[in-house]
């Protein structure tokens, strides 16, 4: 009997410890989730760090997508992509069942900047969008304006997330799948486009019908009266004059229903990530 009591008591104690420990773990996780700016490289003053952190946290809560910044003085993982993906996955970031979020990784030793996306973040931040952010912030990082770069990053992230919520992620024509199902069918815009195409089609058809009513026209060529086989080309010349190259920024890989293209890969945790980066 005594032994049985002892067993119950021990079990109860174990359960209590497990419960408490679990609670502590979850508290720790919650505490970590709140840190949206993890400035291990100490690039930002404490006051600024707290302000940016708060802005990022509010942004993440409001749009159901974690927006994170992580800086390192030197990293043990050689690849910026892996470092960013792993930090995102193993620190418990990501909202919703898809673990949606976007993370900006800055490594001061290797001078790498990388943006890692997951879940709906992959849709909202497609390749063009990531390129755009990097275009904007890389020069700032390069010149040491970290606060400015992080503020810019936060601002663009908010803009891109709102665009994705409206069904038109950056660089897409609006026919994309959008983000978290919140996007609406852009009825007025599609109405306008349909009307424009309809007028063009109707006009072309009317022009074609009018053309077949008028069969009298000058015949400006004597091509019907060429003596068969009489044409001889004696000399042919070709001279290169000049060359010009124009470049247009890639907007989107249009067509289909996916909108802007996002290249993805698997991280060490097996999760699907989007992303892109460069040196600053």
């Amino acid at each position: 009997m005594k032994q049985r009591r002892l067993l119950y008591g021990f079990s109860a104690l174990l359960l209590t410890i497990l419960f408490l420990t679990g609670g502590l773990f979850s508290l720790k996780a919650e505490a970590e989730e709140l840190m949206h700016l993890v400035d291990d490289a100490d690039l930002v003053a404490e006051q600024e760090e707290s302000r940016i952190n708060q802005t990022l946290a509010e942004l993440s809560e409001e749009h159901d997508m974690d927006v994170v910044i992580f800086t390192e003085e030197n990293g043990s993982i050689p690849s910026a992509m892996e470092a960013a993906d792993d930090f995102f996955d193993y620190s418990g970031y990501g909202k919703g069942p898809d673990y949606s979020g976007v993370l900006l990784y800055v490594n001061m030793e290797t001078r790498d900047v990388w943006i890692s996306t997951r879940g709906d973040g992959i849709t909202a931040f497609n390749d063009d969008g990531i390129d755009y952010i990097l275009d904007e912030i890389t020069p700032m990082l390069g010149s040491g304006d970290f606060v400015e770069a992080f503020d810019e990053y936060t601002e663009i992230c908010e803009d891109f997330i709102i665009r994705a919520e409206n069904g038109t992620p950056y660089g897409t024509n609006g026919s994309g799948e959008g983000y978290t199902g919140k996007n609406r069918f852009p009825a007025f815009r599609n109405l306008f486009i349909s009307l424009l195409i309809a007028i063009l089609v109707g006009g072309s058809y009317a022009w074609m019908l009018t053309r077949e009513m008028n069969s009298v026209a000058p015949n400006n060529s004597a091509g019907n009266y060429i003596v068969p086989g009489s044409m001889h080309v004696q000399n042919s010349g070709e001279m290169f004059l000049f060359r010009n190259v124009t470049k247009v920024k890639r907007q989107s890989e249009s067509g289909g229903s996916s909108g802007g293209h996002s290249s993805t890969h698997r991280s060490s945790s097996g999760a699907r990530h989007g992303g892109g980066g460069r040196k600053f």
Binding site: M231, V233, Q234, S236, E238
Partner: peptide, 11 residues
């Protein structure tokens, strides 16, 4: 851009 020439005859 290229400058192209053709010499010949046709009846």
């Amino acid at each position: 851009h290229f400058a192209i020439t053709r010499d010949g005859d046709i009846s």
